[in-house]
Nucleic acid binder design. Structure first.
Lengths: 345, 345
DNA sequence: CTGAAAGCGCTTACAG
DNA sequence: CTGAAAGCGCTTACAG
């Protein structure tokens, strides 16, 4: 493996000059640059990243923290994020760390900072409350994608998210407009009922939905009509069963993520109900799987591509020029499926 | 951030001795070890991994290469793999690189070797043919999980896999034993028809299935009854439509991965068929989603946990003691669903 | 068993 | 514009 020393030797310049070329510094003669670049190409030279990181006490990589490995939505967000990072010509090997739904992503990020010292951090999915409590010690440019960090006010943390409140309302409207009056909501944290975690995405979806229900004259009782649960198909399955047992005359449900909805579909079916004839269902996220379920699931499709693009672009921009953090809402789209019908009369 | 120098200073020993303690060398007095360990703990000292990697020209991490980010099966394999690595007390931040189905994982691994210099490599899913051609330059201990590398004969590449041939036969038997005689197969590479990629997992599944069909007296014509396609629900959807159009009297199909099967279910449904009344279907992998489809999908469940455990244990073992590569078949399980019935007469 | 010292491959003031 | 040199935080022969 060629080192900077070899390149210096072969090109006839010093290692200092070679280093300047590698780092695109301006103070190098055209002649030297040309010559050295030629040698670098010819030797297939790649600077040793450990040496660089050691010297600069900062890696040249961006690191990604993903909340939950089984979450299809975040996974496709990850895919788009990696692609976008690659399009910027950044080291394709951007590190990825998966954390559990219950884990503290900021604590994990702290460990990463120490080990890897990335020049930027991308959080995919996240609990705003955790950030509030522990992010203040961080100084690296960071971006939170798919949750809103505006109210946190950290000047190194941007955020790009679907307008969860608005979109939650949209989901509820799809049900109310068909004439449903007994509607349940599945998913989120128990605390959501009391509005404790107000900055959090899931909570906002629920809040938006409930507001819309009330606007439509549909009463909603958190104790009776709300069933919190984690984000997995199995959790959705169990929660749907509990909800339906409690409300036998339920005619529709809003699951705040598609994986929950997929579990709920199966639960309703196992309880002898046909979707959408006996019960209507709407999900959230717009993951690919919703296009293949039987029936196809109506859902709120988040714009994964745009979320990733805007997030990565902003992060890289701030790494280079350190501007202020920005907070942006990305448009969503209601996708009609085959899972909503008018209630039976 | 404390460095080894600080620890030396505080403990009253030299940095050389501190280094020996960090690296668990035997030639340190009990007294020195105790004292230094206490200081390390008290200071929360973590060795700088860049410096270590630079010095040893080898990182202390294991790196994971995953073929395909949308592949639920490999994702759950990844999850288990990371958990197992963590259980060994290895750096939890084991790097992960996702590559596309068509990409050359060994080329990617070469780049990783240069950048990261991991002490071990885990390949999750893989094309045996690619390995054949390009893996020979590698010297790091490596393991391929979910494909068989035995025939390749690399002494630093172990492999742990389901017996795909046998399991493919099992899937076919589930169909034949119900009386099906017009059976199609979905998925894999076009070359599979000619048996070109014989060492490859998917091919073996197909080969095993075809052998079983013939054993059951069911004729199988690769040109007519086989529909190759990539591993995605959409690909399965399209392939199923093509297959059914070509064989109107098809009564059953074997999809060599669950995601294909999920796409195929939707395709059959869109073509007006009811599963399993009009057509039976069996998948492969045993991903979680198969428990929630309507109907539930019959499938071959690979033992993800055991695959990960055996693979990681073997790799770590060989990193420490450099034994020979091993190749092991991990048991699978047929999971009956609601997607298989007798053909209509 | 322990310490002093060389060196891994880079970057970056500093001097010219 | 260029080079010589210090130093990032470690590991590891080497000497004692």
């Amino acid at each position: 493996m060629a080192t900077i020393h070899d390149i210096a030797q072969i090109s006839g310049y010093s290692i200092g000059t070679v280093s300047r070329v590698i780092n695109n510094r301006a103070d190098v003669s055209e002649k030297a640059r040309k010559k050295i670049e030629a040698v670098i190409r010819e030797q297939g030279f790649q600077p040793n990243s450990s040496a660089r990181t050691l010297r600069q006490s900062m890696s040249s990589e961006v690191y990604i923290v993903v909340r939950g490995i089984a979450n299809t939505f975040l996974l496709s967000l990850l895919e788009k994020t990696q692609i976008r990072i690659g399009e910027h010509g950044e080291s394709a090997g951007a590190g990825v760390q998966f954390i559990k739904e219950a884990e503290d992503e900021v604590a994990v990020a702290a460990k990463i900072m120490q080990d890897i010292k990335p020049k930027g951090l991308v959080f995919l999915g996240g609990n705003t409350n955790t950030f509030q409590q522990t992010f203040s010690g961080f100084t690296v440019p960071s971006v939170l994608i798919s949750a809103d960090a505006e109210s946190l006010g950290f000047d190194n943390l941007s955020s790009f998210t679907t307008d969860d409140r608005d979109a939650g309302g949209c989901a509820a409207r799809a049900l109310v407009s068909k004439g449903h009056r007994r509607i349940g909501i599945l998913g989120g944290y128990p605390g959501d009922a009391e509005g404790e975690r107000s900055g959090n995405g899931p909570s906002l979806r629920i809040r938006g939905a409930v507001e819309e229900l009330e606007r439509g004259g549909v009463s909603f009782d958190f104790v009776r009509d709300y069933e919190p649960c984690p984000f997995s198909a199995e959790a959705g399955y169990q929660a749907a069963k509990r909800l339906l047992s409690r409300i036998p005359d339920l005619t529709a449900a809003f699951a705040i993520s598609d994986s929950l909805a997929i579990g709920a579909m199966r639960a309703f079916r196992d309880m002898g109900l046909h979707i959408p004839r006996d019960i209507s269902l709407v999900g959230f996220d717009g993951v690919v799987a919703t296009r293949y379920t039987i029936p196809r699931l109506a859902t709120i499709e988040q714009d994964v591509e745009l979320l990733a693009r805007r997030g990565v672009d902003d992060l890289l921009m701030r790494i280079s020029y350190e501007g202020p953090a920005v907070h942006e809402k990305i448009p969503y789209r209601f996708v009609d499926g085959e899972s909503i019908a008018r209630p039976r009369t």
